[in-house]
């Protein structure tokens, strides 16, 4: 206990608070490495939140709820993919529209679910591991989605670094024309990457409404999707740095909640702002320190591809 804050509880909360933004960011990282800038992360998250919540409540199964959340996010991402990859609409404008659309659609779909409690997601039973003092509650007493998000980071890292499919995905993001000339299916790769990104964002949204809060309120993502986008950029499109950024954001979120609970005389608004401001500042400093060595973004990021040009 330091200043009325239990560090063990804080550390345990950190992992839970970080999971939604980590999921959304790792999904967006894949989409951007394939050369597509999807600014609709916030919209996909909140649709995942309401979709996951609704299905979990109706079926009584949190697992089905998470699947529903992922499917909702992926569906929205597919809409984005069709618009930007097939009809060649502008990615920035379409992404912004997707966020607005997602916020509106989720508010509509969520009408009957306000004030309802979702079925609880069980903590994973890790046996004796959970009984280790300090480490047990901090690391080994969470639900399966927390561990899934960490496994995803490792998988994405390995996928990009070691697999041929990952190499093709990076190639498409670097130069779609060259990739096309070599016979790779640029649009198919981008559809896949966008769908994965949408599913991850939806999963992150469902985690907010099913575990983190847990209930449904309109606009409950509160900008987490935008933070996920910022984390991807400042992390120089590297999965391991996305993990650091997301846990920083989650850590400060958890800390400010604890500070509020401990009754410090800091205005609540300042505390609520803190995670956003500090995360952005830390990431800016981080990428400034890396300076020229920081990897530039994928060269074809945000550019439309058409086979004829």
């Amino acid at each position: 206990m330091i200043g009325g804050i239990d560090l063990t509880t804080l550390a345990a909360m950190l992992m839970v608070a970080s999971t939604p933004v980590l999921l959304a960011a790792i999904g967006e990282l894949i989409a951007e490495r394939a050369g597509v800038l999807n600014l609709g992360v916030e919209g996909m998250m909140i649709c995942g939140a309401v979709g996951g919540f609704a299905i979990a409540v109706m079926t009584g199964s949190p697992v089905l709820g998470f699947i529903g959340g992922a499917v909702s996010g992926a569906a929205l991402a597919l809409l984005f993919a069709v618009l930007t990859q097939v009809f060649l609409s502008n990615q920035v404008a379409t992404g912004l529209a997707l966020t607005l659309f997602g916020l509106g659609l989720s508010a509509l779909l969520g009408k009957g679910f306000e004030g309802v409690r979702p079925p609880a997601t069980a903590k994973l039973d890790l046996g004796p591991l959970s009984d280790i003092p300090v480490l047990g509650p901090v690391l080994f007493s969470h639900d399966w989605v927390v561990y899934l998000s960490l496994v995803l980071v490792v998988l994405v890292w390995g996928f990009l670094k070691y697999t041929r499919a990952g190499l093709i995905l990076r190639a498409v993001g670097e130069s779609h024309d060259a990739a096309h000339a070599l016979g790779y299916r640029v649009i198919a790769v981008r559809f896949g990457a966008l769908t994965f990104g949408g599913a991850c964002a939806g999963l992150g949204g469902a985690y907010l409404s099913l575990v983190r809060v847990p209930q449904w309120t309109e606009g409950m993502t509160a900008g987490v999707g935008w933070i996920a986008l910022a984390i991807v950029v400042f992390a120089s499109w590297k999965p391991q740095r996305v993990l650091v950024g997301a846990y920083l954001f989650g850590g400060i979120t958890a800390l400010q909640l604890q500070l509020q609970a401990a009754g410090y005389a800091i205005p609540v608004h300042l505390l609520s702002m803190a995670p956003y401001i500090i995360t952005i500042l830390a990431l800016v400093v981080l990428s400034a320190v890396h300076g020229r060595n920081a990897q530039a973004g994928p060269a074809a990021l945000g550019k439309s591809f058409h086979a004829s040009s």
């Binding site: 041929r164 990076r170 670097e174 130069s175 990739a179 070599l182 530039a296 060269a299």
Partner: peptide, 20 residues
């Protein structure tokens, strides 16, 4: 071998070769 190189600048020589 293309007139305008079909290479990926951010990738290494070996990765570029592997892609082809």
């Amino acid at each position: 071998v293309f007139q305008h190189f079909s290479l990926f600048e951010a990738l290494s020589v070996a990765e570029n070769v592997a892609l082809g």
